[in-house]
Design a protein around this nucleic acid. Structure first.
Length: 230
DNA sequence: GTACAGATTGAG
DNA sequence: TCAATCTGTACT
């Protein structure tokens, strides 16, 4: 995706990211996932944002926010990777949005695994149904068994920490430019997600953020099986 | 230097 | 419901 995709308003980007492919080049192969769940963080007034600061939130310079060694990638022009560790063990993959100097970003919360076929991309779940000769009706059962198989390796990218494991990304991707990187990029899948298939909900794990905790800034594709559990 | 909470997760 | 696990940040 080009720069001007990422520099639009953060809530627009967060919704528009649904259905896009993340393509990670790793050891000569492509690891691909379709984005199915996102969350917007709009600092520094947003108390859930890492750019929030009590001191700056109400000043006329409130767009500035605090800058630390952890959150400085949030301030880069849209299209850069902001990645950090939570709870001492899980990486969180974010994409900066808006202009340089504006600490706004989108957290990627879940992907649907995608296989790259000779004919192009297709969804792994569908490919597996096809190869095993089962109807999509039995998809849930298949996914459950696949999940059992892979649980130990956290390979199912249905959560923000798990998708980093799936994509093989870590702190070394901090500040990477998605429009230029040779290791990871975003691509339009050609799939247009209908407005009625985009669900808005409260963001997860930020109950401390007071009035900002109730903002409906989490977006996911309706009925998609890879949306993180709640 | 030290204390402490956290944009999660899977097990029980 | 709970604990694993460790870094960034604030504060002494």
């Amino acid at each position: 995706m080009p720069r001007n995709f990422y520099t639009r308003p953060t809530l627009v980007v967060a919704k528009d990211l649904l259905g896009k492919f993340i393509i990670r080049k790793w050891r000569g192969q492509n690891i691909v996932g379709k984005i199915v769940e996102t969350e917007a963080y709009i600092g520094p007034r947003d108390k859930a944002s890492h750019a929030y600061s009590e001191r700056d939130a109400h000043s006329s310079l409130a767009y500035k926010g605090k800058i630390t060694s952890r959150n400085k990638a949030e301030y880069l022009v849209g299209g850069h990777i902001y990645i950090y560790l939570v709870y001492g063990m899980y990486w969180q993959f974010n994409i900066s949005t808006s202009f340089e100097g504006r600490p706004e970003c989108v957290l990627i919360r879940a992907l649907e695994p995608v296989d790259k076929e000779e004919t192009g991309f297709c969804c792994a779940s569908r490919a597996r149904c096809h190869s095993e000769g089962v109807s999509p009706k039995n998809l849930k059962e298949i996914l459950r068994s696949a999940q059992d198989d892979m649980r130990k390796r956290l390979f199912i990218p249905n959560g923000p920490g798990k998708l980093c494991n799936y994509l093989k990304v870590d702190k070394s991707f901090y500040g990477e430019d998605l429009t230029k990187s040779k290791k990871v990029r975003l691509e339009d899948s050609g799939e247009k997600i209908k407005k009625s298939d985009i669900i808005s909900a409260k963001r997860i794990g930020i109950d401390y953020a007071q009035e900002w905790a109730s903002k409906l800034w989490r977006f996911y594709i309706k009925d998609n099986l890879f949306v993180s559990k709640r």
